[in-house]
């Protein structure tokens, strides 16, 4: 990877983003999502040339773009086929619903963590405190880093299962929960 240029990395990222968006149900707009991500990288982050920084940055932009698309589809009634007039105007400031959603998600995450085993809780706490896996290995008195990797992988899977298999209420994979529209329908 040492010989890859920024253009090479962006080209590969485009392929991955298109495939990701397609797999998440964004059939027609997958190319658009990828294009939007690359535009942001090109316009706002031209100074980021290292691919080790470009890749995580692209994940963040991709997530925002997918959420934006989801909100647009929701507003346009693509899920419910409802009248746009029934929805309030978009607040350009902080989205209170997003804030509430995030608070609920944190509460749900804390509840899920409480259900984990003692070892998983310890590993999660150490990770939140900023310890790397080698440091955790030393702190737990283990001799093999693979032991810590295995424990953490199991804990992550367990936590994900307790969270319902997804980290977000309105996931970017398109399998969204339909909002309660009884009032509007009625």
């Amino acid at each position: 990877m040492a010989g890859l240029t920024r253009e090479d990395v962006l080209r590969q990222l485009r392929e991955r983003i298109v495939a990701f968006a397609t797999s998440r149900g964004v059939r027609e707009g997958a190319e658009d999502v990828a294009q939007d991500v690359l535009v942001v990288l090109h316009e706002k982050y031209p100074h980021v040339t290292e691919w080790t920084e470009l890749v995580p940055l692209s994940f963040q932009i991709l997530r925002f773009k997918m959420l934006d698309r989801h909100r647009k589809m929701l507003r346009h009634g693509e899920y419910n086929q409802e009248s746009v007039d029934d929805f309030p105007l978009v607040d350009p400031g902080d989205d209170p619903s997003r804030q509430t959603e995030q608070k609920e998600r944190v509460t749900q995450l804390i509840a899920a963590i409480q259900q984990l085993g003692e070892r998983c809780q310890t590993i999660f706490r150490l990770k939140l405190e900023g310890h790397t896996f080698p440091e955790i290995m030393n702190l737990l008195g283990e001799r093999s880093i693979n032991t810590i990797y295995t424990w953490d992988s199991r804990c992550r899977k367990q936590l994900l299962a307790l969270m319902g298999g997804q980290w977000e209420t309105n996931p970017i994979d398109g399998n969204v929960q339909r909002p309660n529209n009884k009032e509007t329908v009625g």
Binding site: W51, F59, Q166, W167
Partner: peptide
């Protein structure tokens, strides 16, 4: 990240972990 550029499954998983 190097593996994610070549492995679509890993890329998808990382994208989900972003949340």
């Amino acid at each position: 990240f190097e593996a994610a550029l070549h492995d679509q499954t890993l890329f998808d998983t990382l994208a989900n972990e972003e949340a």
